[in-house]
Amino acid sequence: MTSAPDGSASYRSMRDCLDRIEDTVPGKLEITKEGIVHDMMAPGRPHELTAGLVSRRLEKALPDGVWAHVGTPDVEDEPEGIMRHPDVMVIAVEDMQGEGSFDPRTVIAAVEVVSRSNPDNDWVGKVRDYPLIGIPVYAVFDPRTGTGAVMSDIHPTPEGPRYATRKDFVYGEDVTIGEWTISSEGLPRYAEASD
């Protein structure tokens, strides 16, 4: 009988596996407290347009030296065993310098656009994982329903750090993410048949 690897060894094995296969499989791969999450479908146009619009609106409100970054790399906390890829990261330019994944504790806010194919990843998994890795503000935009939420105020619980505050919104309302308020007017919704 073999023993299970410790958390760090298990995480490193999953990370090495992802490094080998990520260019050969469709969709997006992330490592969570529950294991590897594979969102099979590549994001569709409404998803990407929402991420782009939110990023541009945030950019107009942010001070010099802070970006609403869309793209790579991931945020990674090896001791927690978590590697995630936010759709938009509010982060200081100086914290983007260097090599490798971003330190999640330098991310000012993470924004996710809910995937039609795997909504629990954004509404459940990331609500659990982002406070664990120290991301102080998490905003979710859901094109399926035209609603969303902003979560903040990390506090300790028996299950680990969690967000204490949740402010729900409906598309069309102003949304405050951290210190900055943007409009959610005109964000696209998913059509019945496609993402």
Rank of each mutant, 00 (worst) to 15 (best):
K126W: 09
P43N: 12
V54R: 03
M96Y: 13
I31Q: 03
G27D: 05
P79D: 04
W67T: 13
G44K: 07
D95A: 15
K28A: 03
V54M: 05
D122H: 10
A109M: 01
D64G: 13
G125E: 13
G44L: 05
G27W: 09
T50P: 04
K60E: 14
P46G: 12
D39N: 15
G98L: 07
I36A: 06
D103P: 05
G81H: 06
T106F: 03
R128Q: 12
K60H: 11
G81S: 03
G44A: 13
P73F: 06
F141Y: 14
L62T: 02
V113M: 06
V37H: 09
Y138L: 09
V127M: 11
E30K: 08
K33C: 11
R84M: 10
H47W: 05
H85L: 14
E94V: 09
R57T: 10
A42D: 05
G100I: 05
L49N: 07
E76I: 00
Q97H: 11
A61I: 07
N118V: 00
E80W: 04
D87M: 06
W123P: 04
K28R: 15
Y130D: 04
V66M: 15
P86V: 08
T50A: 08
G35M: 01
S117H: 11
I82G: 06
D122K: 08
H69C: 05
E112D: 12
V124H: 07
E48C: 13
E76M: 00
T32F: 14
A68V: 01
R56N: 10
R45K: 11
R128L: 13
N121I: 04
V107A: 03
V66R: 14
D120V: 02
A139M: 07
N121S: 09
R45I: 14
F141W: 03
G98M: 06
D39E: 14
R128G: 06
L132M: 12
M89G: 00
P119A: 00
A51I: 07
E99R: 15
D129I: 04
A42W: 08
V113K: 00
D129G: 00
R84N: 09
F102T: 03
I133C: 08
V90A: 02
R116K: 15
V88G: 01
H69T: 01
D77E: 12
D120H: 06
L49E: 11
G44D: 06
I31V: 13
A51G: 15
G35C: 00
V140D: 01
P63T: 00
H85Y: 09
A139R: 09
L29I: 01
D64F: 08
E34V: 02
R57G: 03
H85E: 11
V66P: 08
G125K: 15
S101G: 00
V75H: 00
K126D: 07
S101F: 10
D64M: 05
E48V: 10
H38M: 13
S117A: 14
E59D: 15
V70I: 15
G71P: 13
